[in-house]
């Protein structure tokens, strides 16, 4: 059980990075809107697991995406942040189930899952675009990009998580 979970995570890590670099970075919907569904790795990481390892893996995930998209360290910074605040968001979105540490993302309610995805996605995107533009006077541009990319990412994340959920 534990072993298959590890292999599953490693596979997800590699596939999501490649998909982000080769497909999702090149969508450029209406000129410049790109989704970042690679954060699914962080969103769907098993809950009752080593937090230190989780934060470190999130950092590596972001760093690889940064190397592929030449963005310095913006994705790495955003990824460690959402990995760090994930427990709080989980508690907010799922309430009791999280308290008992028996959370399985496939079995959670759809509404709760969308709320959980949305909060983390918007925080991630806000950090990414703030650090990428790095100019507080273009705050409108930052918010605009966050909103458009965020909606796109949430849609894709929900779709992918439904498509690949193995109901047992």
């Amino acid at each position: 059980m534990n072993n298959s979970l590890t292999i599953n995570s490693i596979l997800r890590f590699i596939v999501l990075i490649l998909a982000q670099a080769l497909v999702f970075n090149n969508i450029n919907f209406i000129g410049s809107v790109n989704p970042y569904p690679y954060i699914l790795f962080i969103l769907l990481f098993p809950v009752n697991n080593n937090r230190t390892l989780f934060i470190f893996l999130s950092f590596m995930l972001g760093l690889f995406v940064d190397i592929f998209s030449d963005s310095g360290g913006v994705n790495a910074a955003a990824c460690v942040t959402i990995a760090f605040i994930r427990p709080a968001v989980l508690k907010f979105a799922f309430g009791m189930i999280y308290e008992h540490q028996i959370i399985k993302f496939n079995n959670t309610e759809f509404g709760n899952r969308v709320i959980y995805f949305s909060i983390l996605t918007f925080i991630h995107h806000l950090i990414v675009f703030t650090m990428e533009v790095f100019n507080i006077s273009s705050i409108i541009l930052i918010l605009q990009k966050t909103l458009f990319s965020g909606i796109f990412t949430i849609l894709l994340c929900v779709l992918i998580s439904i498509l690949f959920s193995n109901k047992d």
Binding site: F56, S71, G72, A77, T81
Partner: peptide, 16 residues
């Protein structure tokens, strides 16, 4: 660990 990694990532961003 979070603070350390965040500072590293921030440093890389500044550098770029």
């Amino acid at each position: 660990l979070f603070l350390l990694l965040f500072v590293i990532a921030f440093g890389l961003t500044i550098q770029s």
